[in-house]
Design a protein around this nucleic acid. Structure first.
Lengths: 147, 147
DNA sequence: TACACTGATGATAATGATTATAAAGTGAGA
DNA sequence: TCTCACTTTATAATCATTATCATCAGTGTA
């Protein structure tokens, strides 16, 4: 399953003339296997043991390569670091205000909002972004017991 | 109209024990009068002539004060600077991918999405954020004529 | 009015994420 | 093997934002 996704991703890259290096392979693999929407630094640290000489710049460079190829999405929140999410099927994110955990949830696309926005503003719409914020069950129970 | 909003905002601040300084007055006034969702630096530059000695830190400090008081909202996109938006009635934003212009549009709140997200993930929902991306009419026509 | 206290400001240094630069490495094709 | 273009690495630079701390201002009190 995830092997298929990795293979597809590597094929997509090769097809657009991007060379597959060990670093790229590893970063992609980590992105696909990770459930945690990692930051660039997360990836860097996770691959440190396998690639002791890899530079942070390589992580950033290749994340941008993957972004351009449409393989991943960048998630940005407030002042924190960007997180990266391997693109699979459409989903939105819910983010814990306390601990920053990101959980996926599925919901039909908000086409009617896009249409309304386009109609009212005259913009040609490309995409939208929706995030829900709240408190995750773990943080909720921690707060409950702390009080 | 905007005088009323300014007065209300100042009252809100005073009620929560925040001292009204000339700088705070000016920053708030600028936020209310501005249609452009300014960055901290925009504000700093706009007030430079009136307050030649004002420090950027003062702008940031007070933006945080206003955030805590619920008077403004912080909008963050990608790697660019945060923008600040005086809170009025509920609205969403549509952002031009080319020039970064932000335009408001109204749409009923997405309660059903919040409910679904909460139901599926077990989070207690606090809020959500929705942004639509596209090309504004000006950029659209520029692209059309450039080709 | 003088004094003291608390919060606000201003100058500047520090931080942290990200990007730029340049030198050295690597792999595919001639 | 030689070359060329692309990659990586190391490191410096950038830029927004935050922290620090000395100075300043406003309010309440004697």
């Amino acid at each position: 399953m995830s092997e298929v996704r990795l293979k597809d991703a590597l094929d997509t890259l090769k097809d657009s003339g991007v060379r597959i290096t060990p670093q790229r392979h590893a970063i992609l693999e980590y992105l696909i296997s990770s459930e945690s929407h990692p930051t660039a630094d997360d990836i860097y640290k996770a691959l440190e043991s396998d690639f002791p000489n890899m530079s942070v710049a390589t992580v950033y460079n290749n994340l941008r390569v993957f972004l351009n190829a449409g393989l991943i999405k960048e998630l940005t929140y407030g002042d924190a670091s960007s997180r990266f999410d391997f693109v699979t099927h459409d989903h939105y994110h819910i983010i814990c205000d306390d601990c920053g955990t990101i959980v996926d949830f599925h919901h039909p696309g908000l086409e009617e909002v896009e249409h309304l926005a386009s109609h009212v503003t005259g913009f040609k719409v490309n995409s939208h972004r929706l995030e829900v914020y709240g408190t995750c069950p773990i943080c909720a129970s921690r707060v409950a017991t702390t009080n």
